[in-house]
Design a binder for these strands. Sequence first.
DNA 1: AATATTGGAGTAAGCGCTTACCCATCTATG
DNA 2: CATAGATGGGTAAGCGCTTACTCCAATATT
Lengths: 340, 340
Amino acid sequence: MKPTIYHVAEQAGVSIATVSKVINNTGRIGRETRENVLAIMKELGYEPSVVASALTGKHTNTIGLLVPDVANPYFSELARRIEDRGHEKGFSVVICNTDNGIEKEAEYVKWLHRKQVDGIILGTGIQDNRTLHELLKQETPTALVARDSPSLQVDTVRIDDYLGGRLATEHLLELGHTNLGFMLGGLNSSSEEERLRGVRSVMTTNNLSVCEKDIVTDAYTIEEAKQQAMKILTQAQPPTAIFAMNDLLANGVMKAARELGLRLPQDISVIGFDNTLLASISEPPLTTIAQPIADLGTQVTDLLVQEILGEKTVKQRIVLLPSLVVRESTTTIARTPVQK
Amino acid sequence: MKPTIYHVAEQAGVSIATVSKVINNTGRIGRETRENVLAIMKELGYEPSVVASALTGKHTNTIGLLVPDVANPYFSELARRIEDRGHEKGFSVVICNTDNGIEKEAEYVKWLHRKQVDGIILGTGIQDNRTLHELLKQETPTALVARDSPSLQVDTVRIDDYLGGRLATEHLLELGHTNLGFMLGGLNSSSEEERLRGVRSVMTTNNLSVCEKDIVTDAYTIEEAKQQAMKILTQAQPPTAIFAMNDLLANGVMKAARELGLRLPQDISVIGFDNTLLASISEPPLTTIAQPIADLGTQVTDLLVQEILGEKTVKQRIVLLPSLVVRESTTTIARTPVQK
DNA sequence: AATATTGGAGTAAGCGCTTACCCATCTATG
DNA sequence: CATAGATGGGTAAGCGCTTACTCCAATATT
């Protein structure tokens, strides 16, 4: 049977209070007693029960992580970083896949609440803020990652999507492209809107406009992305470059292009977003807007942990800046866009 | 303040025992009382504390999942399936990245134990069975996935790696290749050894042999894989086909080949393993040995949950069969292997 | 009508731990 | 030498829940 604090106390000839104090390094305990208790603990292979101590009003040392889908490279890398950092700080992380469903999200949050997790990291792109409001009302430490927090008082770590959109667009314009296509996914729509805002801003500055029919949306898998890309690429006057909102979609676009016999990047330039594993794997290697995923993960975890530990009182919003990573999927424009 | 069972009991004018009974659907409770209590619970927004009930000797409804690295597509897909199934069954999963380190693994297991997780799924490829032995001794329900259990009495779900190795080799031989190269990673070495055993078996049957210098190992990233592949490909008489033990490595091989000016698949055939996202993304699309990842995930979860619930007494070993998925990275041999 | 059943609900003892508070020594102080 | 702090450690009351057991009243049984 698993030894409890009672066994240790008995063996050591002290009270359970004393044992508890040496475990937690609280109160005043003599050198000798402490060492003795420690020895007994080791001898018995005693491990304090997190459950019991949690009941006494302390922490469970657990944080909940909500993401749309861990199988998505972006989120799996993020999850890895968060787990790493959490582990360093003594927290375990329970993972929840919401598929960006408001119902699932709410259900998970309720469940995590019952489990008394110490805090929650929201990495979903849901526009609906109901769950978030609920969370804040309940005073569960909460932090947002890769998601905007429109006018809400909550710790947030995200990238500047607007800037990301600008960077991508500027890159394409510099290469001479003026007829641009865009592919949105839907996994993190608030981010995507911001990026599109960046796009529009740059386009307007350059007296260009983005044609609504060159924007396709709702693609979650590479296959769907390919199908959607087909729509854009088979138009009368197809874009010469496509900006996909994540690397997975960009790969879908490339598949479509290849199937249509277009050469990459000579006939069609493609730029992605995120700079996940997929960007370096793809052929040609994908030019993309890099998110500092590792930093997003560690910083949001730090924020949450500080909040949990009560080490900080003011909420903050951290905005990391994306950067352009040029690889081989984009190049200067070759064919004349007029070919009606 | 969060309502407790006492608040509900008071409001409903019953004892906490009664409330507990309606929550758990145990004991005998009258229709009216039950409905009344239920109503009060809803009204108060009461949520039973998992922590408290866990302390009373029940379950925490949590399982621990140990994998080398969730950022690895294979494991992230697996993790997704396990979380999905776990969630369906009412369990949350806490994720642990061991990087295949025996120390980290042991530490995680100890920690999970303190947390009183109901069970543990081991998806690591560590050869050392110490942790596993420990786990079994402690009677923590444990299940292995994608990992062998040499002579141990533990629930296991895995694929037939030997068969996988055979399938890959047979495919290459059928295409006319006789000079084969192999690239191991190290993430799951027991599996890889089995696969290699499959390879050797087929080779021997065909009066062929595998040259030790055509086997490279220890590659964890795509970059490392590329470097290692270079070694094989720049030999005097390089293989005409390479069998990589996972899709990531296969991509590294393709990168190397491309850098050396080799055409894929005409000059060099590449076959991977796992059939993850990476296999369909890559260019050319990767021929690979498909693991039924979804089934691995759900079945191992089911096994563990049954074990936890005490619904079964005999341990079992489930072996799923891999299959060959032919895409475009392999083709019949073109150049003559003799070119010394 | 007397007894046996059974349905419905309460009592109270813990689960393993934390913590506010109390008590006994021991040493430094005037 | 009496006393005020330190110092070291114990007491006991919970935390929110489950469950074995008890008790009572309403039926069913003979």
